[in-house]
């Protein structure tokens, strides 16, 4: 792996973190409406995963989608503009935080009904298989989604039809406020693949390089025709499920323990320890990101509202 890629992974994780912190602030200022689900703590998951994809690989995720949006290359300003409901947002202000997508970047959303995008992901993979394309669909979802029927229907279908899908469960320990062991019959989500005779794995989601390596290996196998795989990535969100979460379901101690294992901190120490980058190099990236996010916030705030006629646009193609 060349130095530039190492630094780029660091840059992306810091960018996600600062975009999310800016979003939290904008939310508290009343500039973001609706729900806001932050990705802070989980940055290594989508950063590692998406760094392993080929451009033809489709990505689809749930509503905690800001990190993925950044990783697929949507400019921070278009993400923040969407959060503010502006016409310049990636979904023209009509989707909001939970519905970011960018078809040009092969990013198919941002889906807010738990588990409902899994059958759609199976269909994306079916479309590629039907057309003989060399593409894998990467479908991300939370641990909570593995308890709903859509998950089981979609995993079963993907195995029966040998679809090129990488199912990625981001196990952040809680489905909203309900701990995994209180909602799921098995603690290790990857075990759910066994009922579908599907290859599976469990990866440390606080280690961006571990995620990247695991994804590279599995994507290669799926591309070669091995069929679907369920990858559980163990991670943790530092913030509440969404803004305004009273967090009665967990202790501050637990959050602190995970924060000591911070994905950005671990990676920074690794880069310095391996002499891949100096503290100065990384500080320079931090400053660059701070500036980029400040500009993105300004762009989003100064962007125009959608025009009234946008209300009736895009209901139908014909």
């Amino acid at each position: 792996m060349d130095t530039q890629l190492y630094l780029d992974l660091y840059y992306q994780m810091v960018l996600i973190r600062l975009v999310e912190e800016a979003a939290a602030q904008l939310y508290q200022q009343g500039k973001i409406g609706g729900f806001l689900h932050l990705y802070i703590g989980q940055e290594a998951v989508s950063t590692g995963l998406i760094s392993a994809r080929q451009p033809q690989d489709r990505v689809i995720t749930a509503y905690r989608d800001h990190g993925v949006a950044i990783n697929v290359g949507i400019p921070a300003k278009e993400v923040l503009a969407e959060l503010l409901g502006k016409a310049t947002g990636v979904s023209k202000g009509k989707g909001g935080s939970m519905h970011l997508a960018d078809v040009q970047r092969n990013f198919w959303g941002g889906h807010a009904i738990v588990g409902a995008h899994l059958p759609i992901a199976a269909g994306l993979a079916l479309g590629d298989q039907y057309q003989g394309k060399d593409a894998v669909t990467i479908c991300m979802f939370g641990d909570g989604a593995t308890n709903i029927g859509f998950f089981h229907e979609a995993l079963n279908l993907s195995k029966v039809w040998n679809l090129p899908v990488l199912w990625v469960c981001e196990n952040n320990q809680y489905g909203m406020g309900t701990a995994v062991e209180r909602a799921s019959a098995v603690d290790e989500i990857r075990q759910k693949a066994l009922g579908y005779d599907m290859p599976n794995s469990r990866v440390d989601g606080m280690d961006v390089l571990a995620v990247r390596q695991a994804a590279l290996e599995v994507l290669e196998k799926i591309r070669a025709g091995s069929g679907p795989h369920l990858m559980e990535i163990v991670t943790y969100r530092y913030r509440g499920h969404s803004m305004g979460d009273p967090e009665r379901y967990r202790q501050a101690e637990e959050v602190k323990r995970w924060q000591e294992n911070d994905p950005i901190g671990i990676y920074r120490r690794y880069l310095e320890g391996q002499a891949i980058a100096s503290a100065d190099d990384l500080d320079a990236i931090d400053r660059r990101v701070e500036q980029e996010v400040a500009e993105a916030v300004r762009f989003a705030e100064e962007s125009p509202e959608p025009p009234p006629e946008a209300l009736f646009e895009h209901i139908y193609a014909e």
């Binding site: 198919w108 059958p119 759609i120 079916l126 479309g127 057309q131 079963n156």
Partner: peptide, 24 residues
């Protein structure tokens, strides 16, 4: 394509395939 008895996934998969440009 014969499918399992799984209506949500029949429609969901059709949606996904349609997004790739097919006409399911």
């Amino acid at each position: 394509m014969d499918t399992p008895i799984a209506e949500a996934t029949i429609v969901g998969a059709a949606i996904g395939a349609a997004l790739t440009g097919l006409r399911p």
